[in-house]
Design a protein around this nucleic acid. Structure first.
Length: 555
RNA sequence: GGCGCAUUGGUCAAGAGGUUAAGACGUCGCCCUCUCACGGCGGAAUCUGGGGUUCGAUUCCCCAAUGCGCUACCA
């Protein structure tokens, strides 16, 4: 029996030939330089910051070059399936403005390179596996789990590389031994379970000098020197479903992906993929192996972000806290491309997509996630969003994640005034960071959240009533900022406080305190806290009634 | 254990065979100022170590250390 007959025995009926698939999925008609990228999540539905980081690279590359970005569901591991995962994935990403042109959607596939769900592509994978079988580049393997374990133990004892490769699976050389050939045929006929393994061409356990190497271009890391693969990896599992390795090669070829963006954890299996691409006679895509996002662990060491331990890793964290998606994107870009911040300083108002993203500027070492930096980026990002938009966005956030703040949104116009406080000054305030923080920051405007939080300053606590009484009596809501502060100065002076802090600093014995202490008393009565934006501006937004009521209550 | 990738301040990082080794966040101090924020000025803080190559290396090479990853019919 020859290879062809064996292949026929294993896969007797397949609807299409490899050539037919090639013509069903022809090379894409795209402009020069247009990149085709893809995101291939498994359907656990869990998308974390690391996924977003990678997805962002895919999205930018494709959309910046006039190419195509598509979603493929990689569900070759049936144990990982989670209900509604696809919707969750698409939803999480679109929240961050990452949208697909093609692939799986909530209402079926879009695009002519599908099916985009790997578990629906069994016939395609089997067709190409059959081709490899016919050419003797793959073989059926009946090794049981126990046998494989035994092999590995023996290899460990002999200090050899673990795995199935030349010399370790009798099925590999099936053509040479009639006895094995007979066994294979009878077991296939008997319906025994088997896997299809790649018959690798590399020399097992060769020394560094003897190992053949291939040069592969990585758009992030430059030229990679990849050794020959000698592992007979499984390409089709017992279930008939391909492994990642095989699915990656077949899909990315047939879907005409030009750039494969994936985490650096794939680097060690690159030899397998190179081997497979060569066996199938296909051109290699450009690989972009991204560095992992890390986090500092309890032990002080860097470590990969883990979904169990790190709440800030889950995209939900940002949504629940109310980080604006634009801020998260902005932050991600600062760690993705080292020249981004510089660009942003030069182009403070440009849309983020105007930035020319390049893989060359990506770091090949893993970045540590930095919440401080995110917060800073977020402050500046929010400054670029106008109050009405911000208010609407906050409402959406509250509706979904924080209904306890519903009272904030009863008067949207009022909210806009509050949010705009000090934002249009020559040197705008930057104190809005994320929704939950904003709710607290502006809380004193609302009776529902108002509380006296801070202590009255020691210098003026004794005069609290006198100050507030005098203030209330002199209060004129139509005073402008200057008139208003003039009155505070008068009150301060009358009660024995310095009208200017400097005077008090120079002659601390001559005064009880200074005008700052007096205004702090007023600030606390009105806002409940010792720190706030300009009191006059706040009063104008609050309205006279509320101002008088608060002062009265504090007496 | 084997293999792969990585290593510039606390964090993100630019950088080139000869530089006072950028910048941002954070931090500290000062200024502005009725508080805070904003803004301005200034400070502390970095090339993992050891060998080479070289007149000279943080930069190139080797080794080591450390970190991360892979070593599945997971992805």
């Amino acid at each position: 029996m020859n290879n062809k007959e064996l292949a026929q025995l294993i896969y007797p009926s397949l609807p299409h030939t490899p050539e037919e698939y090639e013509s069903m999925y022809p090379k894409r008609q795209l402009a020069d330089g247009a990149m085709v990228t893809r995101l291939g999540p498994s359907p656990t539905g869990f998308i974390h910051l690391g996924n977003l980081y990678g997805a962002f690279v895919d999205e930018r590359l494709a959309h910046q070059s006039g190419g195509v970005f598509y979603l493929r569901i990689e569900d070759t591991d049936d144990k990982r399936f989670v209900e509604n995962a696809v919707e969750t994935i698409i939803g999480s990403l679109s929240f961050f403005d990452i949208n697909f042109d093609e692939g799986v959607t909530a209402d079926g596939d879009i695009g002519s390179y599908g099916d985009y769900t790997q578990s629906h592509r069994g016939e395609i994978y089997r067709t190409f596996a059959k081709k490899l079988l016919e050419q003797g580049l793959a073989y059926p393997c009946f090794l049981s789990e126990d046998e494989i374990t035994a092999v590995r133990e023996k290899q460990e004892a002999e200090k050899l590389s673990p795995g199935i490769y030349a010399g370790w699976s009798k099925y590999r050389d099936w053509g040479k031994d009639p006895e094995i050939e007979a066994e294979i045929v009878s077991r296939i006929n008997a319906g025994d379970p088997f896997v299809v393994r790649l018959r690798s061409k590399g020399v097992p356990n060769a020394s560094a000098e003897e190992t053949e190497r291939h040069t592969v271009t990585d758009a992030i890391r430059g030229e990679l020197s990849v050794p020959d693969n000698f592992q007979d990896v499984v390409i089709i599992k017992q279930t008939g479903i391909p492994t990642y390795h095989f699915a990656h090669v077949v899909d990315d070829h047939l879907m005409r992906t030009t750039h494969v963006v994936r985490g650096e954890e794939w680097l060690p299996s690159l030899p397998i993929h190179v081997d497979l691409f060569e066996d199938l006679g296909w051109e290699l895509p450009v690989y972009c192996h991204t560095a992992q996002l890390m986090k500092i662990g309890e032990d002080g060491n860097k470590r990969k972000l883990s979904k169990r331990k790190d709440p800030e890793l889950s995209l939900d964290f940002y949504r629940k806290e109310g980080y604006h998606p634009a801020a998260v994107r902005e932050y991600l870009l600062t760690i993705l491309n080292s020249n981004y911040e510089e660009w942003r300083i030069e182009n403070p108002d440009a849309p983020i997509d105007d930035f020319e993203f390049t893989t060359e500027k990506m770091s090949s070492s893993g970045a540590l996630f930095d919440l401080d930096k995110l917060n800073d980026v977020s402050k500046n990002t929010l400054l670029r969003i106008d109050a009405a938009e911000l208010a609407a966005w906050l409402k959406g956030w509250s509706d979904e994640f924080a209904p306890e703040y519903a009272y904030v949104f009863n008067d949207m116009e009022l909210l806009e005034h509050i949010l705009d406080l000090g934002r249009h000054d020559a040197r705008p305030r930057a104190d809005l960071v994320y929704a939950r923080q904003i709710m607290d920051f502006i809380g004193y405007f609302f009776d529902e959240a108002f509380e006296i939080r801070d202590e009255y300053p020691a210098e003026a606590a004794a005069d609290k009533e006198a100050i507030l009484k005098a203030y209330l009596e002199s209060y004129d809501h139509s005073d402008d900022n200057e008139q208003w502060f003039g009155k505070i100065r008068e009150i301060a002076t009358e009660l024995g406080y310095a009208a200017k802090p400097k005077d008090y600093k120079k002659h601390p014995d001559e005064y009880k305190g200074h005008v700052g202490h007096v205004s702090t008393v007023i600030r606390i009565a009105l806002m409940g806290r010792a720190q706030s934006p300009d009191v006059w501006a706040i009063q104008q937004i609050m309205g006279e009634d509320k101002v008088r009521a608060r002062l009265q209550a504090a007496l």
